[in-house]
Design a protein around this nucleic acid. Structure first.
Lengths: 167, 167
DNA sequence: GGTCCAATCTTGACAGTGTCTATTTGATTG
DNA sequence: CAATCAAATAGACACTGTCAAGATTGGACC
């Protein structure tokens, strides 16, 4: 996780992890089946932290509308502030949504429940979860890649969400 | 580009490209500066095709509202049908938005002009480009990763766009 | 105490990869 | 014809993921 703060998961090697832990180059194989096994674990931990961030934002909001906006903005902020952690969560070569890890599956469910609940509580239809999730995911990804700034992304989400609520 | 249809850019090796072209393992170095140089070229070609798809969708639409929806849906469809090409376009280790390639820069501009024009023509504010781009990007990415189906993503974009137009 | 066992770590080896250097080829051009 | 220059080549290096086969450990049990 420490290495993941500085470089993309793709560029993290098992031997590098071993060196950082000051053990032999093969010690990681007694803790992870594979290089992909390591990445799976990184993805699970990252997802747990993303879910925690979103939940904290939802719980800290005064009303349902504010909760939807705060939750979405927390999602976007996570993507921008921890881009490599965010990327590894959604890397399809690491975790296939159709067949997720035993640890990952409930986290995905929880994220969907949190976001879905916020969408419905704010007065939107349940099917609008797709749009809201897509919106924060795309804004977060593009902002993380540098296509626009974080505050532009969060403001943009807020006004789009309000437009959907009004419409 | 042929290899990119079957596997992510990350898993394409220069030596593999050389074998596919039936040349020595070092021949690619006379056409690309670097492994990253190859990926940059793949990103540029992919971006050109994405822009072409979006433009074709815009031009084939009967009115401004239909154009916005068709353009966004073309973007989503590209992401789902050619996920590896889509990924390499937005890979920040390949092309940094702040300092894009000479070939990539005008393509990014063109995409923004196309989408921005569609947004404004349909009656939205220019600042809504961010939300629309983020929306199709996120829906495309999540659908490509398998989090929901293509038709769910395109339908979701259509109804969200109509909601924004009505609000 | 002694004995087993499972985890953990180690060294050593292998093929594959990106990249550097130096050398050869082959066509274009003066 | 000779010169030149781009394109391709072979060879080498460090690095990587992964496999195999031994070490070391610490506790559970007789």
């Amino acid at each position: 996780m420490q290495l993941l703060a500085d470089k993309p998961a793709t560029e993290i090697s098992l031997r590098e992890v071993a060196r950082a832990a000051d053990v032999s180059h093969n010690a990681p194989y007694h803790h992870f089946s594979d290089r992909r096994g390591l990445l799976k674990t990184l993805a699970e931990r990252s997802m747990a932290e993303l879910v925690a961030d979103v939940r904290a934002a939802l719980e800290g909001a005064p009303d349902a509308t504010a909760a939807l906006i705060a939750g979405g903005q927390a999602y976007i902020r996570f993507a921008v502030e921890r881009p490599h952690a965010f990327d590894v969560i959604y890397d399809p070569t690491v975790c296939i949504p159709g067949a997720p890890t035993a640890t990952m599956a409930p986290l995905i469910d929880e994220l969907e429940t949190l976001l879905g609940g916020a969408v419905v509580d704010a007065g939107l239809r349940a099917s609008d979860l797709t749009a809201c999730w897509g919106l924060v995911h795309g804004l977060g990804t593009l902002a993380a890649a540098g296509h626009f700034r974080l505050d532009v992304a969060t403001d943009s989400f807020e006004s789009a969400a309000r437009a959907m609520l009004a419409g």
